[in-house]
């Protein structure tokens, strides 16, 4: 029987739990309009994970981890040209550039990153294709899901709390009126300083996130910290005075609107 649905109804954490407990083997596809992820499981353990069109070559992974130098990467690129990932891995291990544990460990980190990325997805179609194997030429790992599930559950809880504190990213931020507060006395992180630079009632939180290249969770986390420190407050974008929405009155004539409010006031006083 096919396992398919939407993350809105059955969360990614629940899916991982099911695969883990039922010791399933096969491929889990999760699709959103702009990206697709594929994860392969063997007996309930993660064997492989990738985001479509984001395949990172093994040499790049080793270079980013500091296991090979830039010069070595260039030479090895030439020597492993035309080899698939598995053949490249075998070549690197035989040539003593890395050992098998290092390769496995780096790939596990890479796959865990893909899984972490999906933790934040609230929407997306999923389907599980039982029995599907890891693509030819790719290196499989054997990764327990328990720790990822616990991490994901914690992350979801944090996301819920952040969303409750900052429900809308269409609001703006301004510095609180605290003449006694000296900004330079606060120990802010690099991320917090980057956000601070854009704080202005004209910028929505969404716009700030785009400017500093943060996702919804990262920007909420920084804004939450700054709010808790009493440095900023959430305001409506654009500053004052407000442009009142047209729909709030049955008439668009300002004098008639005022008269309407005055009639309401008069009536409520008389209750």
């Amino acid at each position: 029987m096919t396992l398919k649905g939407n993350l809105k109804e059955f969360s990614f954490i629940q899916l991982l739990n099911l695969i883990n407990l039922a010791k399933k083997s096969g491929a889990l596809y999760i699709e959103r309009p702009d990206e697709t992820c594929r994860m392969i499981f063997r007996d309930g353990k993660l064997a492989f994970a990738e985001v479509e069109n984001e395949q990172i070559p093994l040499l790049t992974i080793l270079y980013e981890a500091g296991l090979i130098s830039s010069a070595q990467k260039e030479i090895l690129s030439v020597r492993t040209h035309g080899m698939n990932e598995k053949a490249t891995g075998i070549f690197l291990i035989s040539a003593n550039y890395v050992d098998q544990t290092q390769v496995s460990s780096l790939l596990m980190n890479r796959f865990a990153e893909v899984v972490r990325r999906i933790f934040t997805w609230e929407d997306g179609f999923f389907r599980f294709e039982a029995g599907e194997l890891i693509p030819d030429g790719r290196i499989p790992v054997h990764m327990d899901l328990e720790n990822l599930i616990v991490e994901g559950a914690r992350r979801l809880q944090e996301i819920e709390e952040l969303k409750s504190e900052i429900p809308s990213l269409n609001m703006a931020l301004k510095f609180t009126d605290r003449p006694d507060a000296e900004m330079r006395n606060f120990n802010l992180s690099v991320e917090e300083w980057r956000v601070i630079n854009y704080i202005d009632p004209k910028n929505t939180i969404q716009q700030i996130a785009a400017a500093v290249k943060m996702d919804e969770i990262e920007i909420r986390r920084v804004v939450y910290t700054l709010l808790q420190a009493g440095l900023i407050e959430i305001v409506r974008p654009g500053g004052m005075p407000l442009r009142l929405p047209e729909k709030m009155f049955p008439t668009q004539n300002p004098d008639e609107q005022k008269s309407l409010v005055n009639r309401l006031i008069h009536r409520i006083r008389s209750i």
Binding site: P241, Q257, K258, V261, N262, L264, I265, I268, R269
Partner: peptide, 26 residues
């Protein structure tokens, strides 16, 4: 208490008038 509820509603309506004045002067 009706009187307390009336006060709250009236304060909101006064606030609306203030916003309208501010929007108009703006």
């Amino acid at each position: 208490k009706k009187s307390a509820v009336k006060t709250v509603l009236l304060e909101l309506l006064y606030g609306i008038l203030e916003e309208m004045d501010a929007a108009q002067s703006g």
